[in-house]
Write a protein that binds this DNA or RNA. Structure first.
Length: 520
RNA sequence: GCCGCCUUAGCUCAGUUGGUUAGAGCGCUAGAUUGUGGAUCUAGAGGUCUCUGGUUCGAUCCCAGAAGGCGGUACCA
């Protein structure tokens, strides 16, 4: 046996992450807050499995050039393909269609859970992450869409992000109308439309000149990578740019929309503006319809008191490419995000959604309108972690009952049980008990609020020593001499040795009292 | 997917113009201190210098490729 045992390197698959107690606590707190908002809006929970048959998830997907890419799939023993869900919307559509007859319509539901994407991880992007969705199925009007936007805004407020986000709203019908107007309607132009929409989506990321490059020949970024353009003529790209920037820059456009948001605004006026910019005498009907829906939503927001600093129209919002059929929306953080190295990081949206009237219809012969949105819980938590806004706190540890005398473990166990019955986290030390200091160090590492010490001296007197670890740490910091440090026994006090007295004394420690209050 | 940068101890990083035993700080383990977390001091453990191939008498270092990480870009249901 001279050969060394071959060890397996412990390593995490790329794009995945372990979650530690502080993260778990923070995520739980976040999801609890989100849940409260959704329930207040009348939504009920539903849970679907992580795996679905691939065709129920995928057939409808826009990923025509790379079918099945990006999805983790496996074959069942009956040779049917199953996939890990990549969002929570497709499974909801399946659930609704499957239980169509029993569910109330409109059907309002929410659900949280992990979703999986088999693609390259990026800043704040993992291959397993949590989403928290809400959807209304069976409500066709823009008031359902408006409600989604307001709920998104309320959720962000509930998470303590008031003033640090904006919900951007657009309408796919408007975008379709613009594409129509520049002669990109019809089947044979589908690929071009896709490229144009992708380019338009970049308007909040790049200056308009760069977007124009994407609309025409293509663009080379600073790393030297070349992106193929949509191949529009200068006249066409100019018209798109005019839509994106009636007054030459996106910033000014946003101000323009901001103004119409709060002041009287008519669809007619915007149409006139576009006709003038494009030099045409009419706009496509679908564009007008989209504008009307936006106008209705705007009214609802205004009456409900959602100012444009919280919800605003932004013509560059595109979202999923063939999935959405009407209003689309997106939450963006308005503060800068930096990574651990202090570099500014391009952080995309932390949530979004829209109307997807086709998604349920593929399971049924009649049309089923639906609208919903999704918050990227992991992504949002990641952003907040980087900015120090995530309340990630180490959980309060257990009270540790020290083992001073191996022969007395039954007694120590009895104290531990007494604490547990009173609802207090407690454990008897179970490691190497030879060294007292190690036991205290263990309690420190576990973030224990207190340790209980009962050695032979205490036992003779019928008492125990309780050491308040938090007070102890504070008072110890002022002591520099080691002998003095030990003699001081910081944070320590005596208590009668019966279990009721111990429980009473421990319960009074602030950290324990807080724990009891939080866990009633 | 494409482009750029990076990879040396558990962590953060030095270093070797290519040469015998590869370093620091922090952390970890043990002791000083027979029953007290921190501080101090002492000692110790811990490395296939990411991997594979090439050049070379000799590679952690030079070259090529791969993997992983970071960033950008593309995609994003």
């Amino acid at each position: 046996m001279t050969e060394k045992k071959k060890l397996i390197a412990p390593r995490l698959p790329r794009g995945f992450e372990d979650r530690l107690p502080a993260d778990i606590g923070a995520i739980n707190a976040m999801t609890a807050k989100i849940r409260k908002v959704y329930e207040r809006y009348g939504f009920d929970p539903v849970e679907t499995p992580l795996l679905e048959y691939t065709d129920t998830l995928g057939k409808f997907l826009p990923d025509t050039d790379r079918p099945n890419a990006g999805v983790f799939s496996l074959m069942d023993d009956d040779e049917q393909w199953m996939s890990l869900r990549y969002d929570l919307t497709a499974p909801l559509a399946r659930h609704f269609a499957e239980h169509f007859n029993d569910l109330p319509k409109p059907y309002r539901s929410y659900r949280a859970g992990y979703v999986f994407r088999n693609e390259k991880p990026g800043p704040g992007r993992f291959r397993q992450f949590m989403q928290f969705d809400a959807d209304t199925v069976g409500a066709a009007g823009p008031e359902a869409d408006a409600e989604m936007c307001m709920m998104m805004a309320d959720t962000m407020d509930a998470l303590g992000l008031a003033g640090k986000y904006v919900v951007k709203v657009n309408n796919r019908k408007v975008l379709d109308g613009v594409l129509d107007a520049i002669g990109l309607g019809g089947e044979q132009m589908a690929a071009k439309r896709l490229a144009v929409l992708r380019a338009m989506d970049k308007a909040d990321k790049f200056p308009i000149e760069e977007v124009k490059k994407l609309l025409e020949g293509g663009r080379r970024d600073e790393s030297g990578d070349f992106t193929q353009g949509a191949g529009l003529t200068p006249a066409q790209s100019g018209a798109v740019a005019q839509f994106l920037t009636p007054f030459a820059t996106v910033d000014r456009l946003i101000r323009f929309f901001g103004r119409v948001w709060t002041k009287p605004f008519t669809v007619r006026r915007y149409e006139e503006l576009l006709m003038k910019a494009w030099g045409v005498s009419s706009v496509p009907a679908v564009l007008t319809e989209g504008l009307r829906e936006l106008e209705q939503m705007r009214k609802l927001f205004r009456v409900a008191g959602y100012a444009p600093d919280r919800i605003r129209i932004d013509p560059s919002v595109v979202r999923g490419l063939e999935y959405y059929t009407g209003p689309v929306f997106e939450i963006e953080l308005t503060f800068k995000v930096q990574n651990e190295k202090g570099q500014d990081v391009v952080f995309g949206s932390v949530g979004g959604g829209g109307r997807y009237d086709g998604l349920v219809s593929r399971f049924r012969s009649e049309p089923v309108p639906a609208t919903g949105f999704s918050i990227g819980v992991s992504r949002l938590a990641n952003a907040l972690k980087l900015t120090g806004n995530l309340g990630a706190v180490e959980p309060t540890g257990p009270v540790v009952v020290l083992v001073m005398d191996k022969a007395e473990t039954a007694r120590y166990q009895a104290i531990t049980s007494g604490l547990r019955q009173a609802g207090i986290r407690a454990e008897m030390f179970m490691g190497n008990t030879k060294n007292f200091g190690k036991q205290v160090a263990y309690a420190d590492k576990r973030n224990a609020p207190a340790v209980i010490i009962e050695g032979s001296q205490e036992r003779e007197q019928g008492i125990v020593q309780i050491k308040d670890m938090i007070v102890g740490k504070e008072t110890a910091a002022a002591i520099s001499d080691n002998a003095e440090y030990k003699a001081a026994r910081p944070g320590q006090f005596e208590c009668k040795g019966d279990i009721a007295s111990i429980v009473a004394a421990i319960s009074e420690l602030p950290a324990v009292a807080q724990y009891l209050k939080d866990n009633q």
